[in-house]
Nucleic acid binder design. Structure first.
Lengths: 352, 352
DNA sequence: CTGAAAGCGCTAACAA
DNA sequence: TTGTTAGCGCTTTCAG
């Protein structure tokens, strides 16, 4: 009876069970279990025989049965209340890696801002007996907390904010990131630093503006020339044109709310014969390589360290699954990645 | 004994079991099961009582137990051999939606081109007793087939290609998409259509070039001026400069291998005082809105319909899980999304 | 050192 | 119409 008695070419041979292994090794199921889990006391010879058979049969224990027994599924849900876009993705990736390294599998759930869909996803996840849940989004704005009926499940909100004080929310420190950018411009001697950013209904917009104001005020500079618009290149172009229209009030630096705006602004500067960074320095936000590298000159930008955020979310969830009670809103530091657009020729990143 | 006997504020109350429901409704477990599954014959009164209790307790059946019994986990793995980027993501999203609508949950696995990591992921998925597997990638190039030891599991490769003839591979029709683009340019009267594209080691590069050649040859036009380089804007700029250097051989259209190249080319045209689309029409590939909308003029581009690809992958997998034996490489049609850069002022999409 | 038995939560025969 | 029982695959006492 060789190992290919049931070969992969059979029509759905199913997978071997512990019973198969035990039978073929001539031991009881309990013994086989002990051998495979290295638990209990067993003769080396028996253990070796069981392991040998298991390997030959490509035996893989059934996690479903295991989970049923242990009441722990080693499984976590990742719920995005928006399609996983440019922001949610780096987070999801780092999270997945962290959890996988801890032996935890990740269910991918996309609710696309549809409450009914979200409800059904949560129901499905409850059925799967997930041990934890990560909620993420495209924006860091406030959302309604997840309610898990009659069941205290560890939940981490990442790049997503919730009102409840006992919820754990992991967010980028937008304000600190903005301060970092503006302080860098100040250190390079810029004084008339304008801020061009996105729609004011985004929390990130006013946090970043806050950082811009704080950094300027700290140097006794009055923050003025604050323009909000869309998150687009075309808004960046338009804003730059507006800012440069009056030569008497010409800024010497632009801190932009995202990289697209910054790139549009750089474009417009060039069209108007204003050179960056000599005449006007520009700094963006997001450090999105597609933008920073294509911009001319390459764009200095604030990096939200989304990977670190996802990693931290995984670590926090693992702690919570082990019983820790984590709560509150934690803001993780951003970094500034310096490129040519701000007038320094350093290309290294500096951490906060 | 009210429903909040075990409220969410308890320290990990766990979840209620069918036994709890049965006990509280004063029936046997089997009866409760029948009531909840609407199976067997039951008095309406009993059924109602059971359902009422179940609702009050927020009872959710344990899918793990169910799966163990049915030997079907209603669970599928999504394995990306590269981080989910711009291409894998729209696919993943549509796939998730399709599977979720069929009651199937999706495990997210990222192997990041690391074979050892891939192996461990597959092992984990085997343990979870997944009913199917979707393999995806950032590129459509050939990869090694997944091997599932001793177990015939339905596998769909999407945006990812495998040599085996009995593997099902779903891919975009790159060649057809390119033909679509070039035919459109031809229909607008362009004749000297150059092709600027990415590195030749990408399968997509030579497929698209193939389409470009085929469309031209069909009109008895000799395909010439074929330039390969990086997938970047800066390559697009450089290539455009090269193509326009010799006024005697000036092209009247550029078909680009992706949107970044196309955008770079448009940029360069403008810098050289060549107006698009009047002097030179430009068409891109990918229909990546970040690029097409920021480009000036807005960029006409080929859309690979990645969502449709993901949806189709889900549908195919569901069929296979039901016993269908699907195989072979299927190429799904691309569409052309017409914007201003090619000289037409239509803005509607036309399907292949 | 090894095996028999109970049980995780659920479903499906089969009895009553 | 309802209940009893066995079993999905595994782990874990507890006897032998």
């Amino acid at each position: 009876m060789t190992e290919n008695e049931r070969s992969a070419s059979d029509a759905d041979p199913g997978m071997h069970t512990l019973r198969d292994v035990a039978r073929r090794a001539g031991v009881s199921i309990a013994t086989a279990s002990k051998a495979l889990n290295a638990s209990g006391r067993l003769s080396a010879e028996t253990r070796a025989r069981v392991l040998e058979v298991a390997r030959a049969l490509h035996y893989r224990p059934n996690d479903l049965a295991h989970s049923l027994h242990r009441a722990r599924s080693m499984t976590v849900g990742l719920l995005s209340n928006d399609s996983f876009g440019r922001f949610a993705f780096p987070i999801a990736e780092a999270l997945e890696r962290r959890l996988f390294d801890a032996g935890i599998a990740l269910f991918m759930c996309n609710a696309t801002d549809d409450p009914e869909r979200e409800r059904r996803h949560i129901d499905q996840l409850r059925g799967k007996r997930i041990d934890g849940l990560v909620v993420t989004a495209r924006r860091t704005d406030l959302r309604a907390p997840i309610t898990l009926p009659g069941h205290a499940l560890p939940v981490v909100y990442v790049f997503s904010r919730v009102d409840s004080p006992d919820a754990l929310c992991l967010l980028p420190d937008d304000e600190g990131g903005a301060r970092l950018a503006v302080e860098h411009l100040l250190s390079l001697g810029r004084r008339r630093i304008a801020h061009v950013t996105g729609p004011e209904r985004f929390e990130a917009v006013w946090l970043r503006a806050q950082g811009w104001r704080a950094a300027l005020s700290a140097q006794a500079i009055e923050p003025e020339r604050y323009l909000t618009g869309a998150w687009s290149e075309s808004w960046g172009r338009q804003a730059a044109a507006t800012l440069l229209a009056d030569p008497a009030r010409m800024p010497d630096a632009l801190f932009c709310g995202n990289d697209q705006i910054a790139r549009g602004a750089l474009d417009q500067l060039e069209r108007m014969g204003v050179t960056a960074p000599d005449d006007v320095a520009v700094v963006g936000f997001d450090n999105w390589s597609v933008m920073t590298e294509a911009a001319r000159p390459p764009l200095t930008s604030v990096d939200m360290n989304l990977g670190a955020l996802g990693d931290e979310a995984g670590a926090a969830l693992i702690e919570m699954m082990a019983g820790a009670r984590l709560a509150g809103a934690r803001r993780l530091p951003c970094s500034l990645v310096v490129r040519a657009s701000c007038g320094a020729n350093r290309t290294t990143a500096e951490e906060t």
